[in-house]
Each structure stands twice: as C-alpha cells, then as structure tokens.
Nucleic acid binder design. Sequence first.
DNA 1: CTTGACACAGAACAGGCGTTCGAGTATCAT
DNA 2: ATGATACTCGAACGCCTGTTCTGTGTCAAG
Lengths: 225, 225
Amino acid sequence: MMMVRKSKGLGERHEKILDFIASFQREHKHPPSIREIGLHCDISSTSVVNYYLDQLEKSGHLERDRKISRGMRLTGNTPLGDMLRVPMAGVIQAGEPIQVPANDSFGSFTPDDSVEIATSLMPAREKGKELFALKVQGDSMIDAMVNDGDIIILKPAQDARNGDMVAVWLSDRNETTLKFFYKEKDKYRLQPANPTMKPIIIDKNESLEIKGKVVMVIRKVERQN
Amino acid sequence: MMMVRKSKGLGERHEKILDFIASFQREHKHPPSIREIGLHCDISSTSVVNYYLDQLEKSGHLERDRKISRGMRLTGNTPLGDMLRVPMAGVIQAGEPIQVPANDSFGSFTPDDSVEIATSLMPAREKGKELFALKVQGDSMIDAMVNDGDIIILKPAQDARNGDMVAVWLSDRNETTLKFFYKEKDKYRLQPANPTMKPIIIDKNESLEIKGKVVMVIRKVERQN
DNA sequence: CTTGACACAGAACAGGCGTTCGAGTATCAT
DNA sequence: ATGATACTCGAACGCCTGTTCTGTGTCAAG
C-alpha cells in the first residue's frame, strides 16, 4: 500500500531551505554551502541537508551540480538572484474574461511559459510571488497604449486605489479592458492611458470586476509585415 | 616616472579571462574555479590566475568573494548569466535629436544608469554589446504606442529594412519620432504602430536620419496622479 | 651594472565542502 | 511484536579550491 505523505508535497523544512537559499543568493550573489544551509535552518548534520537537497532536486525545485561547491540553483518562479520568473497565465483579449491563476503558492509550477524580469526593473518591491503575466491578443487595448502581442505583468487584486492601472472585466458589456481606475461618487471612471482619449464612465450598478493591477508592460518589437 | 601600460587598460590575457568567465557562466550556470580558468586560458599556475583576478577586481571588471569557491562575478554590461545590462544613454523627446552613445566597446562603462533585461526576453539573439536604452520624455510618441516615461531599448543603425521600427530624426521638421519604416519609390513611409493612425510620408529629398532600430519597449506602470 | 617593477611558474598549505557510512529514533501499518 | 519507511545525527574521508611563498626571467629606468 502506498504511504501517505504528511503534507502532500513540501514539508516545513523543505520550504525553509528553499527560502534560505533564495535569500542567501540575493544577499551574497552566490548560493550557500551545505553547511551554511544547515546552520541557518537548524540542521546539525550536513548529511541531512544533503538528504533534503536530494529530495528538492527530485521534486524539481532545485538543480544541483554535484561535486561542485555551492553548485545549486533554484528553479521555478522563485526569485533567483536578481531575476524574477513570472508565470505566463494565458492571453488577454477584449471579448473574454481573464484567467487569473489559482493561488497555488507552490506545488505544480509547470515551467511552461514564463517571463523573466530583472528585479531592478520592478517598480515597487512587488514581492513577485504573486505576479503573473498575460499576452495581449488583438488591437482592442490600443487606447491603453497596449498593442497586440505585448506582455503585461500584473498583480492579482480585487480592488484598486484611484490612479491604479487595472485589468477589469465588464460583464455587462462583455468586455475586458485595461484602464486607469478612479472611483467617483455613484460611478467609476476608467481613464485610458492615451491622454487624447476620453474616459469610460461606469455606473455603480453596472458590474465591474477588477482582476488585477498592471505593474509592467513589455513589448518585443519584431519586424512588422 | 609613471610606467606606461602596454595597452592602456586591458591586456590580451585579461580579456581572455573575462571572456572565459562569461562563457563558462553561461554554460555551467556558475563561475569557474581558479584552476579551470588557468586550464582554458593557458595559464599553468593558479597563482597567476589569482594575480590577474586581483587586477581585474581592482579595475572594476570583477567582484570577488574571497575564500569562497567560485566566488566571482562579472560587472558592467557583460552578459552575466542570463542577464543583459543595457546602458541608459539618455532621454528621447520630440524636439531634440537622440544622443547615440559612442562605440566605446569597453573602457569607461560608467554603471550610472542601466537597465537589466533577461536574455530570454530578447527577440532575436541581439548580441547585446551594441544595445542602448533611452527614456521617453513627453507624450509625443503616443502614436507609436509609447508613453511618457517608457524605456525603449534600441540597437544603433544607420539604415533599416522595410518593417523595422526605427527611431528617426527629421531635421527638416525638427522632430524625433518612432515609426515603422517603409521605403517606397521616391519616398519613405513612416507608419505609426497604432493601426488607427495614418502614416507620415517623407520625400526622398527631405532629410531622414535613422538613429537606431527599436528592439523593445518597457513600461513600468506606476500609480497615476 | 644595479635596481625594481612586472609577468609567470611551481609547490605546498590549510581550510572549505560534498559525499558516504554506520547507527539511532519515531511513526505506522501488518 | 515486527518490519518498513521517514527522518536525524555525528564523524570521517578525500577531493576541490583559494592562498601564500619562493624562485626565475624580462625589461626599462637610474
């Protein structure tokens, strides 16, 4: 009969080690040694650290270069050094609602498509764990200065403060759009990023679903035509 | 009297070591050891490698974590791992020509302002050595889907192929602009990125200076207002 | 010629570090 | 009880690696 794992995937210690490697890497610019991991994760024996490292490698959270000092690196969307890996959740287009990824904090991080961003580019200290990316399909967001093929990085959110750029789903109009958000008395004002264009006014009784705040827009300029 | 260095800054061996560290890092995801450097750079003694590493550290091309295995990392705009550091050359605004940085391949790489991009984001294999970044000032490029505050990454170029997005300086009109470039008989057609806007037609006798090809546009979305 | 800075080689040292092995403990199903 | 599985510990082994010291040859300045 199969054994039932205590906590399905990652144990407390696994996460502690993973977190320590990430923070150590950020601080020292290179991975920790086995002994340093043990020291900071309350593991007294190097063999135990090695034991967990092996498991983390098998589960795909880690890569190891055997025999080489500090030869380990994190995989997945964990901030690695000064890099941030943001999962590509899908596409965003005018006629369809957005798929916000489930909050699977860890677990099956399928490294299918992902976007790598230098942390130095991140506006605020968006911790990163929560970010996700969408690829824009179609020309419907040009009033938000977003083109077909652009990649937008956003942070999940159900509400927004005035001035935030948000991705909203207007079910009454069957429309997904990117706009600057302003709450005014009895209505919402959705202001296009393009200053020459006029805002959309939404009554409070109309449904307005905020899906996330836009943090960044990236456009790879390929040759047109 | 002051000694005159053979080649001013970097010797042949310095560059060889620098190149090796970069390529090794790309391949193995971690820096080489002193002995590995010596082996691939035809240096038989570890002390000599150490000797050059010290110099490279003093000249700022390298950072070292003493006592730590493979504890070195490249600085500057050298591709480090999967990162690319692009120098920020200045601002681009409608009324003024662009400052294209001089081709100082190495030398005084003042790490003043620079933008870090993951190589995985780079469209083609833009080698990177030639790229530079500009910050957009003003709303004059909205027809190119580029907003105030955006960062554009571009590659120096004097000419362009049809379909390239280029930064051009129209001295007759005293205007800098970003457009898709098309050469037609007796004229140039500059097509805005926004498909709802009409192209600018430039006669062949009007002056048109191509400054560079746009490779990427990055927008950090801060809270407006 | 002497001096000294510079580039280089080789060897030895000492500590860092991954690896391995033997052994012990706890929990749980059989 | 019994065995299997998961987890933990401590110690020792041995390679890997940065550091240091001594010595050699070159070359330009004094």
